[in-house]
Amino acid sequence: MAQLVDIESLIARVALGDRKAFSTLYDQTSAKLFGVALRVLNNRASAEDVLQETYMKIWRRADRYASNGMSPMSWLIAIARNTAIDRLRATRDSANLDDVSNHLVASGPTPEQSVVAAGEAARITECLGKLEAEKGQAVRGAYLQGLSYAELAEKFSVPLNTMRTWLRRSLISLKECMEQ
């Protein structure tokens, strides 16, 4: 991730309304964010739409980046992921159309400093590897595909409450592992 610094300064310029920086940021990051949306939505047309919505949010909220403490790429991915999950849920349950909340992105300053992405990748992979295979897959399914408890329960053919218990226990183990 040699371009981390570049992305950070691009976001800073986008926050000042710099359209050229915005174009460059799109060119450098859209393939990743499109991958994120595709993974969640599994539909090219929706993913294209969500990608546009994601960058519209990035254009409007770039000024909030500096205060949120995440690595720049993680921040962009979080916006794409949340936008895609919002879309997924809106299509699945049109009653919740207005529930497009800002999530992480709108949150205020966090004390957590940004972390080197490579280290994080190794750590989470290692800790997920210590869980039973299916439980690790459930956490991955929730994060990468935005699966809900109900969908996870169906996917792994267990009752909903069992899935809840499973996943919460897995999260507790993960937390302990990652805090070491």
């Binding site: 991915i77 979080a78 994080e120 990748a121 992979t125 993960l174 990652m178």
Partner: peptide
């Protein structure tokens, strides 16, 4: 929230890049 967001972001590496049209 910050703890989980940054730790889970390690999984972002598993997402393949796909160039949009």
């Amino acid at each position: 929230v910050a703890f989980w967001a940054s730790r889970l972001s390690g999984l972002n590496d598993e997402i393949a890049e796909t160039t949009p049209p």
